[in-house]
């Protein structure tokens, strides 16, 4: 097993920031993930695509230690605790969950502050906050507003902004485009692309494949809880190509 992992690491250009081996997870008695192996390189933007119910959210939750899971996840070579999302988050892995998980009755400003809960340094806090507000200028106008009262797009921006306040080393995003207008989705994905070019490693789970393919360095296709293909997005030239892989 470890040999196979090493071989794969050599195959990708960057050293792995995250490596999962034999990751399985279940919800109650339903197995939603079956022995998934995957690698995320330093600075990589990896898209995980797949139909509804493929286990994409479960995969991200299993990495965070949120769902009952087996297998091993290594972060920069060190094994992550498996049932302790607080510990995983404090290592610098931040998940923007499905549905965003905002503290809706609290203000935008408070949400951002809580994203940096573990940060003690005031100057660094200010720096990060200014950076987030520069990335998402719309949040700047709404700092005092209750998070739940904003539009879906603004809420998604806040969720990503809050995640960035933690100063993540690896950012996991669960369908950030869900329910958003195409224009807003594009704006958000552009920002993610920018962050990635600055060196942030990102795992992007998406149903809207074309958008994710534009950004991704690499693509995993997930189906029925297994990785069925690992692709270079440049090889996928049409929707038919992708569909072929789904059903291969």
């Amino acid at each position: 097993m470890s040999l196979a992992v090493a071989a794969k690491t050599d195959a990708s250009t960057a050293p792995a920031i995250l490596a999962a081996t034999g990751l399985s997870a279940r919800y109650g008695h339903i197995h939603a993930l079956h022995g998934v192996d995957l690698q995320i390189g330093e600075g990589e933007l990896v898209a995980v695509l797949g139909p509804n119910g493929a286990g994409k959210s479960t995969l991200l939750r299993a990495i965070m230690g949120l769902s009952a899971n087996d297998g091993e996840v290594r972060f920069r070579g060190e094994a992550l605790p498996r049932r302790d999302p607080v510990a995983v988050a404090s290592r610098g892995i931040v998940l923007v969950p499905e549905g965003r998980g905002l503290f809706s009755p609290m203000s935008v400003s408070d949400n951002l502050e809580l994203g940096a809960y573990r940060l003690g340094d005031k100057a660094e806090f200010k720096r990060r906050r200014e950076r987030v507000l520069a990335l998402f200028p719309r949040l700047k106008e709404r700092l005092g507003q209750v998070a739940g009262s904003m539009s879906g797009g603004e809420q998604q921006m806040l969720a990503i902004g809050r995640a960035l306040m933690a100063g993540p080393k690896l950012l996991l995003l669960d369908e950030p485009s869900l329910g958003l207008a195409p224009r807003v989705t594009e704006e958000i994905l552009e920002t993610l692309g920018l962050l990635n070019r600055e060196g942030l490693a990102i795992v992007l789970v998406e149903q809207k494949a074309p958008l994710a393919l534009e950004l991704a360095n690499r693509v995993y296709l997930l189906s029925l809880g297994r990785i069925v293909a690992e692709l270079d997005p440049r090889d996928i030239t049409s929707h038919d190509d992708l569909a072929r892989h789904y059903f291969a």
């Binding site: 905002l102 408070d110 502050e113 809960y117 933690a166």
Partner: peptide
């Protein structure tokens, strides 16, 4: 910050854990 974090736990405990709030 601690008070806000306690409120955050009451609003959405899982999301609070994901921010690293103990």
């Amino acid at each position: 910050k601690t008070g806000k974090a306690m409120r955050a736990c009451s609003i959405n405990r899982e999301a609070a854990a994901l921010q690293g709030i103990p």
